[in-house]
Simulated scan of single mutants.
Amino acid sequence: MSFDVYTPLLLSLLLPLVSPVIGRRVAPALAARVLTSAAVLTAAATTWSLILLVTALVGDAPPVVREAREDGRRLADPVPEVIGVAACVALAVVVWRVQRAVRAERRTRRALRRLCEGQPRDTELVVAASEVPQAFAIPGRPGRILVTSAMLSALAPAERRVLLAHERAHLTHRHGRVVTAATLAAAANPLLGPVRSAVSFLVERWADEQAAAAVGDRVTTARALARAALCAGRARPACALSFTDRAVTRRIAALQTTPPPHLWSAAAAVLVLGAIPALFAADATGDLIRLLWNALT
């Protein structure tokens, strides 16, 4: 098997390097989408490469290869045995990590949905009597916005509108799905952990920009975020899209400047970076198919 099968694993090192730059220079909505898409493509390509290495692990494993060798035909070993064993172990770890991430996601979502049990189906805003200032969006059908009474009392009326617009943006643009996709990609490929962190930050920035546009005032949006961050407690659900989560000081600083531009060229470059590992994985698949075809013929 050619070097192509290893290339997706090497290229997955590049995406975490460019994600901070894209996060700073490209509009949050566009950056979050392209980084997530590239991460999913890269994770799928690296996982498939591991599958190919495991498939080619045992020189005698595919029956057609074994029979071909018994007939005296010379066939090159697709990969060294030690690499195949390492790929087998790595693939088992990937499966375990993805299963754990899926279970954690389901468990957290069930816990969040239970917070809104008993509310009318058409109720978007749920106010919980609590002394802990909290506000977060709960994805689902229907999506809900959960805000504690302490958070509402800490904000001025204009700042409350910012908070609700922020959380509504999470629901409208399905940020929960974006973060989940990036989380599963990072579970499949731990090298993509920084990309997952960047996407989690960018969806908050995305919602900040949507809130600023909705209220028409970036200063009020920054002030609402700062006030909420100062009074917010530390405890919050792990995967909730929280108003005061994800590097608040950086978000406030960003709101005090002009919105980043939509650099489509940079976004396209990131997508290409995500597509290249998939192309190499496809080429490696072709190599394995040709090997089996030669064994058959």
Rank of each mutant, 00 (worst) to 15 (best):
A129H: 15
P120M: 08
A92V: 12
M151K: 03
R141H: 13
H170K: 15
V94K: 07
L288Q: 10
Q134K: 11
R160H: 00
A101P: 01
D122R: 13
S2L: 00
A226S: 10
P261M: 05
A254T: 04
S149Y: 00
V94W: 09
P277M: 05
T221N: 09
G216T: 00
A268D: 09
A214L: 05
E105I: 07
L202P: 01
E131M: 13
C88N: 00
V79G: 02
P142Y: 01
V195T: 04
D217L: 03
H262A: 12
L41T: 03
P28F: 13
E117L: 07
L192F: 06
L241M: 07
A211P: 04
A284I: 01
E67A: 15
P62E: 03
G286S: 10
A229N: 03
V21F: 10
L35S: 04
S265N: 12
P120N: 06
V126R: 10
P237C: 13
A282V: 05
H262L: 12
L225H: 02
L171P: 02
L288I: 08
T123R: 15
A129I: 14
L241F: 02
T220M: 08
A211W: 04
T180R: 15
L75S: 13
A284C: 05
T46W: 01
L184I: 06
L13Q: 12
T108L: 12
Q99E: 14
L164S: 07
V5R: 10
R113Q: 14
T221I: 07
A68V: 11
P120F: 05
A213T: 11
F243D: 01
V21L: 10
P260D: 04
A211G: 03
A86H: 11
S153K: 15
S19V: 09
A266P: 13
A32N: 08
P133F: 02
L291V: 10
V18M: 09
S2A: 05
L225C: 02
N189E: 14
M1C: 07
R107C: 12
A185T: 02
L9I: 14
